[in-house]
Simulated scan of single mutants.
Amino acid sequence: MADATYGLWPLVVLNTLLFIVFAASFFHPKTQRDWRAMGAYSAFLVALFTEMYGIPLTDYLLGSWLGPRFPLLKDTHAGGHLWNDVTGWSGDPHLSPFHLASYVAIGTGFWSSPAATPCAPSRERRSPECCRSTPPQAKSGTTAGTETSLR
């Protein structure tokens, strides 16, 4: 590896075990369903930390296919920005149009999440005025499995 930011497999193992033990200290699986949920969480952590410290999945899957065509595709952080290599962007990968568009998309998501919160159902309040659209049952004339005639 040309860059010290990838290939840190002991860090992958350490972080994965640390997070699994931390979760297991609060969530004590008892049933088969609990163990399945804990296994899914553990698999997510393995994938997350492998992507962060081991090798990015896109580099792993596309590296042998795109490697001869794009010499900049290396096992470095800058080499992981595939769109820059494909389009020929030669500047800082974090200032490319693709990265800037992703910043805007992330900011839009942060902005829209609290904006949608008043319409989310809650146990305390269920008022129809907080919803912006009419439910499909009211439009079709059916409610709770019973049909009414529209005359």
Rank of each mutant, 00 (worst) to 15 (best):
T108P: 04
F98N: 10
N15R: 04
Y41C: 00
L73R: 05
P68R: 00
Q32T: 14
Y103P: 01
D85I: 11
V21A: 13
S140T: 13
T76W: 00
F27S: 09
R126F: 12
S112W: 12
F26G: 11
H94L: 06
K139L: 10
R123I: 04
R132S: 14
G88V: 04
G88P: 09
F44Q: 02
A144M: 08
G109S: 05
W65Y: 11
V46Y: 08
A2M: 12
T117V: 09
P128I: 13
L66K: 01
L11P: 00
R123V: 12
D34F: 01
G39P: 03
H81F: 11
P68S: 00
K30P: 03
G107I: 00
L17E: 06
G80A: 15
L8T: 12
S113W: 14
T142H: 08
H77A: 08
T142I: 08
H81I: 12
F22C: 14
L66R: 07
W9D: 02
S140E: 08
E129H: 13
P128V: 10
P97I: 01
H28M: 04
T87N: 05
P68Y: 03
Y60D: 05
T87D: 13
G141R: 14
D59K: 15
W35D: 11
A78E: 14
Q137Y: 08
E124H: 09
G109E: 03
A144E: 14
S112F: 12
C119Q: 15
H94W: 13
L14P: 01
R33Q: 11
M38E: 06
D85V: 07
L72V: 03
G39E: 05
G63W: 08
T134D: 02
M38A: 15
G80F: 00
K74C: 10
W35V: 01
N84Q: 07
I20M: 11
Y60H: 13
P118G: 04
G109N: 04
E129D: 07
S96D: 12
R123Q: 12
A47L: 11
E124C: 10
A40L: 09
K139V: 13
G79F: 00
A115P: 04
R125Q: 14
N84E: 08
P97Y: 02
Q32P: 09
A144G: 09
T58F: 01
V12C: 01
K139N: 07
L73D: 01
P121K: 07
R33S: 07
T87L: 10
E124F: 11
V21W: 01
T16I: 08
L150H: 13
A23G: 07
G91N: 01
S133H: 11
L48D: 05
S133T: 13
F98Y: 09
W111M: 04
S102K: 13
I106F: 10
V46P: 00
P136I: 10
L57S: 05
P136E: 03
D3F: 06
E124V: 07
R151K: 07
H28A: 13
F70S: 02
T76R: 02
L48Q: 07
R126K: 15
A24M: 11
Y6V: 15
F22Y: 09
F110T: 10
D34G: 05
G107D: 08
S90W: 07
N84W: 06
A40Y: 14
T76C: 02
L61M: 14
I20S: 04
L150V: 03
L62N: 07
L17A: 06
L66S: 04
D75V: 02
P29F: 05
T76Y: 00
